[in-house]
Design a protein around this nucleic acid. Structure first.
Lengths: 201, 201, 201, 201
DNA sequence: GATGAATGAGGCTTCATTCAT
DNA sequence: GATGAATGAAGCCTCATTCAT
């Protein structure tokens, strides 16, 4: 049973508006404001997303699936894992900002949320494949696990309030460049703690 | 004009309770809960900190000053800048979590807040001295500026909800180790964007 | 101007569903739920009954007319008024529950609502005929008026939440039996207040 | 830890206002209106009664305890159970209206609510003592149980919307007089169904 | 005509802040 | 001063009603 055309359009408008506003102003914006930005009434917002969390959830699933799709393409088109990984991170920077911003608000619900969990699993498996391949090719140091990469990416992509927009937008790329240099195989500093192997806990 | 002893004690209890609760539960905790955790009434809380922002501000100034003090010690005791920087980051990890968590809520007010601004300036100057010295000593790559280091630290120290406590606590150290490896002088990857030279914008 | 067959069918489905749901869950059920139970869309519901009150009104008129019809039969088939009255109360128990439940929501509108008023008048006149005849036959005490009987019946038929269904269903009969015993002519206790002679106020 | 004087006063004002408004306009009145009628802000209302149900609960417990107290007095002062019962019903008429009106909204929660349950138990035990004694004295028919009396009273005391106030206020007395006549020992009509022995189900 | 999506007023509740005790 | 009760603006959400498909 697919949605009516106008319903689908509304849903997309809402997700787009929510993404934009949340990134710009944080997660405290009232639902009414999101509805207004999407050009719909609150009622419509609530019809599509039964409550605040459902909206975040929709946002997250959407972004995770898109970022995964980007990654699959990079994985197929690049010759080596290291390049695919960097390209994936670079191209998914904008989407990753969404995921990073949403994470703290959703993470506790993940284990109980089939759809969200599956989206995350697919994403994490792709990332894992890349990381392992890069390590086997000798391009990435061996003492990190995919979870380390995921979490560092998550942190480095978080919004930094107070920066001029054109500066802030470029930082995830800049900082992940530094991170990648730190992940290269010839880096010797031994890491404290244990490699992170799971994405959700 | 110094405070009476009990007033000072109240103030410290409140700041300690607020720090603990904010780190554990995020910034949505009601003022009542903080007052209760501090063992005082809301009235007293509001006498010390006229509103919510003032409390955050107190928290931030407190933490920044402490982290600066730690850094000064490291700077004087370590023989080279690189070691001082690493020690400083390592030892200030807990305090940095506070600063990182508070940043998004205060950053816009910084330019108008003399005391907060000054604390930040002192901190940033110390960090800058270390970074520049490390670069001059050939230990750190030259295409980053102190602001890059500060912001990356800020991001890498942010709380990661959903992780088991004992895992989460160790991550800032682990991730800053990777970052430091990425900052070492022999890293070749050219960075996109421009070096960040200011701490507040 | 008679309705088309399908329109009539819709109308009846809606009334049946509404009666059932209202009795089971009270009058707080949303219109959507009634529409769903009736197997139609809300739009159709609103086409038949322009607003919530119109639906209640339909329900009430329907039930009052049916209960009156039952009463007429009893009145013709039973040899004495007292028996007719008891049979009428007994057989109309289910319908009376509807009328009793609806009363508080409609009563204020009755004087302005021709159709509802007429249905009520017919019902009340029938009841009055029975009461007066029973009194004249010496079966019913003389210090009550038809309005007393009507209101007591209304009250004793109201839903009693929290009871097991099979218990609750039998109570109107049980309790009206007690009431009839109290209404028998040889009861001596003088009543406080005045006999009630009108049905709607 | 007893309440501050003003807090206690507020609590009482709220209960009084709620009782009055609920009886006059039903349970759909907004919380704001009750607060206004009590001369306090909504916040105060919510501080005393955490949500709508808590207010109803407070109302019910209050009324039940008062009605029980009245009954105890009647029980001690009257020479026979039958007189005590009638006096009790007569004097508690106003309070019973509250209990009757509240019942449908609370009954499902009773088994899980210690305080409410206890109040109800005390009330029911008193009523039971009276009923049993009246039956043993030969004043009340033997085929009813205390639960029958309680439920009939509950029903006969319910508000009848649409009646002029001075008429409506007298009806519970008038109708319970009829009921008492129906309950007298010499009434022969056998009742359908089984005696009701519990008050809450 | 039927359907169900869209609308937004209005109810419930929370919590930052003020103020009486 | 300290306390915690009171206040009410503002956010979340529901649902009666309207309207596009």
């Amino acid at each position: 049973m697919s949605m009516r055309a106008d319903a689908r359009r509304n849903r997309d408008q809402i997700l787009a508006a929510a993404r934009k506003i949340y990134l710009a102003e944080g997660f405290t914006v009232p639902m009414d404001e999101i509805a207004r930005a999407a050009g719909v009434g609150v009622g419509t917002l609530y019809r599509r997303f039964p409550d605040r969390d459902a909206l975040l959830r929709g946002l997250a699933i959407d972004a995770i699936q898109q970022v995964t799709a980007l990654g699959e393409i990079a994985w197929q088109e690049e010759r080596d894992a290291w390049s695919a990984l960097r390209r994936f991170v670079h191209e998914g920077s904008e989407l990753n900002r969404v995921v990073a911003a949403v994470r703290p608000h959703l993470i506790d619900a993940v284990p109980d949320d089939e759809e969200l969990f599956q989206a995350g699993v697919a994403w994490f498996e792709l990332l894992s494949r890349m990381v392992v391949a890069a390590q086997e090719a000798g391009d990435m140091r061996g003492d990190v696990a995919p979870g380390d990469v995921l979490l560092m990416l998550n942190l480095l992509t978080r919004p930094l309030a107070g920066l001029p927009a054109e500066l802030g937008a470029g930082l995830p790329d800049r900082f992940s460049d530094v991170m990648f240099d730190g992940l290269r195989a010839d880096s010797p500093t031994p890491l404290s703690g244990a490699p992170i192997t799971r994405w959700w806990a």
